[in-house]
Design a protein around this nucleic acid. Sequence first.
DNA 1: GCGAATGAAAA
DNA 2: TTTTCATTCGC
Length: 506
Amino acid sequence: MFEPTPAETTTFTATFDSSEIKTEPASPSSQTFFFFDTPVDETKPKRASHKRKPASSSVSPSSPGSPSDSPNSDSPPSAPAAHIPRPPNAFILFRSSFIRAGAVPARVEPSHASLSAIAGLTWAALPPAEKAAWHRRAKEEREKHRERFPGYAFRPRNRTTSTSSNNNSDGVGGTDGEGDSGGTSSSGGGGVQEKPKRRQREVPPADRPRNAHIASLLLTGLAGAALDEAIARFDQERRERGEGGVEVRFGVVETPEGRVKAAADACERATSPAVRRGAKEKAGSVKEPKTPRRRKASSVRSPSSSSSSPASPASPTMELTTNDLPPFAFDFDLESFPPSPVDQHNTAFDWPYGSGVPSSPFDGFDTVPSSPFNSYPPSPALSHASASSSRSISTSASWEDLSLSLAMPSLPLSPLRTSPLSACSSMSSLSSISSDMELGCGLGAMGAMPVDLSSMSCMGMYDAGVDGLLPPYDLDLGLGCGMGMDAYLTSYVEETQTQAEGLVAW
DNA sequence: GCGAATGAAAA
DNA sequence: TTTTCATTCGC
């Protein structure tokens, strides 16, 4: 089913095999709403990967799988030892699936950089159960990788010391040890290649608000033509307001300056004075000397780490943080969505929203999602998410609207819970949550719900630093739709816990 | 080769 | 703690 195409034979994504999809947990009520499996279109030849060259980290395991076992079985027998790629992690798997599923059509967003950003946002908002499935799969991949390449050890190459590293190349090669046993890598041995030091982002990602908007649309279930339309409207409205951003897309050359300006402008607009971050974090301010390479979006780290980290480990040049993201509205009923293919062993899974299908996102669902959210008046800002209303989906929300919504007062926050959005801000600490709350961004704030999610601690990503976590539905923004969600959340959490019990601990 | 994202793993 | 690299592919 997921048979790799020749071009794929060097990748591990190719190892996905429907037959290997776990036949487990499959809790009867497995609720998954955002699961992209990899409906690989084998008829579509894949382009050669541009993936980074193995550097010197290629590894010929001491007792590798036989060459035929190697992913590069195509390579000539006399070929130098093949690079063994690392096993993909959960997000990489998710991203691949996300892309393959065409969740965001190329006509909407052709840039894979942006797609990655969107995937990242989506990932951050993924329900724990969904993430669990991906983590489980990643774990399987790791295990398979281990079996295949028993001698493999990840040997990252030190690129930071560009010249010295070359001088140090013996050391590098040494550490690569097994990897260079074939003396294969171009940089191996005497092949001094000035390795550029690790790149650092010099420009902010293009049109972050737009990416966030797309993610939020996806999370509301939009797909196909509806998604196109919604995004087109979004773009159009921004244009009408003279708010660029979209102009940098669709083939238009993006110069760093242009992107900086576009993103800065977007940031400026998106961040109203009321929600602007503290003065210490001025947009476009200093570049951090040691750039925190990225924010930790979904990983909830230990309290210690979070306490030591700044409130916004944003990009070095732009202070656009995920705190600035629009809210995601989960305005649908999980039960209306198809079950996870992983749990269902569904080999021919298409992502629930009918990727690429020019139809309503709700096609395939008998009933328009009827979540408890529907009982509440949708936020004007989230009108695009008003899946409950009808099949005609208003997508009038703008980044500014969403920003406005961010400024709305929030309800008391339960310290027990955090949300993907707060995770986006890389925080698990209460202080950061407070920060989020100041921004009005994020934590849905229903009254304290005595939900003890400690049983989900088996999910490594939600570590002990957090007393518990919320399913992503906790993203109301004080829009008046929060309180009544308790029951819904409780039931969800209970179900999730049930599911979690079946998960292998990571 | 870079960019985007997150996460595993090594340094 | 920091860095690399796993994925993708247009530029």
